[in-house]
């Protein structure tokens, strides 16, 4: 008899209905998480978040391009003359002292993607120039001329030894 009373109490039935809907909805939402998550980078992609580079083989005045997270990174072993020139220049439309853009002045490490529309700039006599819309960067990766709004980006990196850097980990 008491069971019947419960059933006929609409409030109780209503509460259970709401609770069931909430629990079911929460479960359905949780079940979507693996689907969403599966579209994020997989662990093998994430594990390429850092790249080790042996820089001992780059002699003075030379540059090397390596891939970090699929993006080109320029590593330049700058000469004393180049370092001096860069220290004297304030940069272009996005002024920044050269000292803030390097860890060791002889090594410049920058992401080789033009800040305008994402093309890869080419080496030029004075730095880099972008083949797409003619943006010009100096040997500190600072924008001098052209449509690009900002200097070339600096990846996080650190020196493991004097001859080895790890990019992707500051």
């Amino acid at each position: 008899m008491s069971d019947d009373d419960k059933v006929k109490d609409p409030q109780r039935r209503d509460f259970l209905g709401k609770a069931t809907a909430v629990v079911g909805g929460a479960g359905a939402a949780a079940a979507c998480w693996p689907l969403v998550s599966s579209m994020n980078p997989a662990t093998d992609v994430l594990s390429k978040a850092t790249t080790e580079v042996d820089i001992g083989s780059i002699s003075k005045g030379e540059a090397k391009t390596i891939a970090w997270q699929g993006k080109p990174v320029f590593i330049v072993h700058r000469t004393e003359d180049q370092i001096r020139a860069m220290n004297e220049s304030p940069g272009g439309k996005d002024p920044q002292p050269d000292g803030q853009r390097v860890i060791k002045p002889e090594w410049l490490v920058i992401v080789g993607i033009c800040t305008h529309l994402g093309c890869v700039p080419n080496r030029s006599a004075t730095g880099w120039s972008c083949p797409c819309h003619g943006s010009q960067y100096d040997l500190s990766g600072r924008i001098l001329k052209g449509p690009a709004p900002r200097n070339l980006e600096l990846p996080p990196y650190q020196f493991v030894t004097d001859n080895k850097i790890i990019i992707g980990k500051a």
């Binding site: 059933v7 069931t20 629990v23």
Partner: peptide, 19 residues
């Protein structure tokens, strides 16, 4: 989770079917 949710559905079903 499934056991709890299924029990809740079971009770719901019984109540709905009571009449």
């Amino acid at each position: 989770y499934l056991i709890i949710f299924t029990l809740m559905l079971g009770v719901m079903k019984r109540r709905i079917w009571a009449d």
